[in-house]
Design a protein around this nucleic acid. Structure first.
Lengths: 148, 148
DNA sequence: ACAATAAATGAGAATAAGTCTCATTTATTT
DNA sequence: AAATAAATGAGACTTATTCTCATTTATTGT
């Protein structure tokens, strides 16, 4: 899902937040990595460039303008992922061995069925469902660059 | 999914772990609550009865014998839930307002389709999928005892 | 382009969740 | 009931995240 068409400066100005160095650097790093990334890994990539407190602030800023998705891996590590306009709806696959997080697109057929299920749940439980998430856990095999 | 048929002592002896007071108290509390619960809330229920360090140890023990499920809420709070033998496969619904976590069963039809989707993903990505989870987010309305 | 104002940053202190240590207590085994 | 092994409590320690505040950087109006 790597995407080089978007520029940090454009992203920021499109969302009407001021353009600052730390924001550009964080966005650059996320765009360059192109996959969901652990805060820990992100911190190590930014060591010496962006202060720890600033990193957390920038991540919060990005969440506020809805271009950052945050979730946790099975071992409770926080993972973030940029939401780019041309990204399609997708879910995540976690390797329990190396910790890698992989984007997965499921079929439209499946997504439609999930929506129907959610509608049923909404009615039964009188709950207004806004969003959903499908997570899959397992082991990446020989294709994974981390585990061998 | 509240279940009163299981006794802490039986659960522990069935899993060959020694029967101790803190373990009984923690299991009792989880059985009594009968729903997924935040560590924070669990701690407050056990205040003065079980030491913090012991609580975490007991929770780890229960995870080791596979009778405790752990996951995180959308705001990254850790939530635990007892896995009882007669519980059926289910998913979770999170209220963004009051933080309540509700068990949801989805149709067999849907689950079968999800399994098919996972098989596709397994082949495509050469990933061995062991487990999955469907999470839904939204707002509970007038039925919820917490929000009004 | 420049001054004034508002917002963002860095560095480290503060807080909070979870783990670890170790002396004491409680279970289990014989 | 004694010996051995395991579990506990209390609090120290570690690590992730938030907060504070003095300084720097961006934005706005002229």
């Amino acid at each position: 899902m790597k995407n080089m068409t978007q520029e940090p400066r454009n992203i920021l100005s499109q969302h009407k937040v001021s353009i600052t160095n730390p924001r550009i650097i964080v966005l650059d790093t996320l765009l360059d990595f192109g996959n969901p990334i652990t805060i820990e890994e992100l911190q190590s990539k930014l060591k010496g460039k962006v202060a720890k407190s600033t990193l957390y602030r920038v991540l919060n800023d990005l969440k506020k303008i809805n271009i950052l998705n945050e979730f946790t891996s099975p071992d409770n590590a926080v993972v973030v992922e940029l939401i780019l306009e041309e990204d399609s709806h997708h879910h995540h696959l976690f390797c329990s061995d190396c910790g890698e997080v992989i984007d997965v697109e499921l079929s439209d057929e499946f997504e439609m069925m999930l929506v129907k299920e959610m509608e049923k749940v909404q009615k039964e439980l009188n709950f207004e469902i806004k969003d959903h998430r499908v997570e899959m856990f397992g082991l990446c095999t020989d294709e994974c660059s981390n585990c061998e």
